[in-house]
Design a protein around this nucleic acid. Structure first.
Lengths: 206, 206
DNA sequence: TCAGTTCACATACAGTCTGCATGTAAGCCT
DNA sequence: AGGCTTACATGCAGACTGTATGTGAACTGA
């Protein structure tokens, strides 16, 4: 009877685990987004996922761990969105600009800014959140800067990348909060270009 | 009527209130900084302040309200630090740069970045925190930009100011987290200057 | 100056939450 | 087929939040 045919009655253990974990993560995501981490209770999450708290604590060590998995999925989704938009056929400068737009687009998915930029740092600590998107997407900005600004030293690149990254985050937050997306995007792209300096073919004035 | 003489033995009600509130706010600040809002309990706060929870709930409507007062004090302290460093005798450009340095200095006070930049947005919501430092310090950056970039339209100033503000916040965070403060400051000031554009006396290249 | 009222706080309590310990039925391996 | 492990469910202990209530000291007006 160990067939792979659709037998919804008896499921293999791996299947059960997978569906349960997914249900929990998605239910938790919805509640964390709408009510915040602190105001979301594990009974609520379990109920929304259609299981009991026992299952939750069987699959995740605690509420914080569940939140971490939610964040991880979210960060991966953002990274995927960015990579899908950077074909690699472009000049470093163009790639950077396309990647930037893709990031801002990816962050418009509802709840994403709240999870990654607001709740995340408070619940897991800034260090862990930065480690997460270091592992998923982050350093693409730094590398992009490195290539696009090739040759021009003049400023600590590592630090600059992180400052610009913060500006991107705020841009996403503003757009999500209902600010004029057009203005914010324009300002962000403009700031990025200032940071990149003059076009390579045009000899720099300094 | 009531004598205004100093009677240190029996304290007036206003005095009692003031000292109790201050004790609570300072005790709470310490705990919020070291353990975070979520992991700090009101029994703990009350004990650290040397009073009971009853007093806490007499003076503040709830834990969140107490946190709000802590944040308010902190934001005011930052604003004071900035204003103390901007004498007003300077050119708009110089004033902006001096103010920027002052901001980064003010944010080195232990716990300030965590309270204002990490816990604050999560506990009170980004909107309320932004309203708070709008009311205390914030728009000085926007006004500074406006003056220093006088004439050059080319980019939405409002949006740009908020993006730069986010970069400043991240700079403070990085310095607080132990990053090379020299590098971060250099990068931040450099980015600010790029945003300001070329010096007014020197005709812009673009 | 003194009775009534308000204020500053303490104590007690109800409801909820978190994490764990224990129980059970169903896969799973040999 | 039998033992072992997995995937949950249930029950419980400790802690926490917010509120209702009690008490003595400060305040107010006559």
């Amino acid at each position: 009877m160990t067939k792979t045919a659709a037998t919804p009655l008896s499921r293999t253990n791996r299947e059960r685990t997978e569906t349960t974990r997914l249900a929990l993560i998605e239910a938790a995501r919805g509640l964390f987004v709408s009510k915040g981490y602190g105001d979301t209770s594990t009974p609520e999450i379990a109920a929304a996922a259609g299981i009991t708290r026992g299952a939750l604590y069987h699959h995740f060590v605690d509420k914080r761990d569940l939140f971490r998995q939610v964040l991880l999925r979210e960060a991966e989704a953002v990274a995927a969105g960015i990579e899908a938009a950077a074909p690699g056929q472009l000049t470093p400068r163009e790639a950077l600009i396309e990647g930037s737009k893709a990031y801002l687009d990816a962050m418009t998915v509802p709840g994403r800014t709240r999870l990654l930029l607001i709740e995340g740092p408070a619940v897991l600590g800034l260090a862990e959140v930065m480690a997460i998107d270091e592992a998923t997407s982050a350093n693409s900005l730094r590398q992009g800067l490195e290539r696009a600004r090739a040759g021009k030293a003049e400023v600590p690149l590592d630090a600059l990348a992180r400052l610009l990254s913060a500006a991107f985050d705020r841009a996403a937050l503003e757009i999500d909060a209902g600010a004029d997306g057009q203005d914010v995007r324009a300002a962000m792209l403009w700031l990025l270009e200032q940071a990149l300096g003059s076009e390579p073919r045009r000899k720099p004035a300094a």
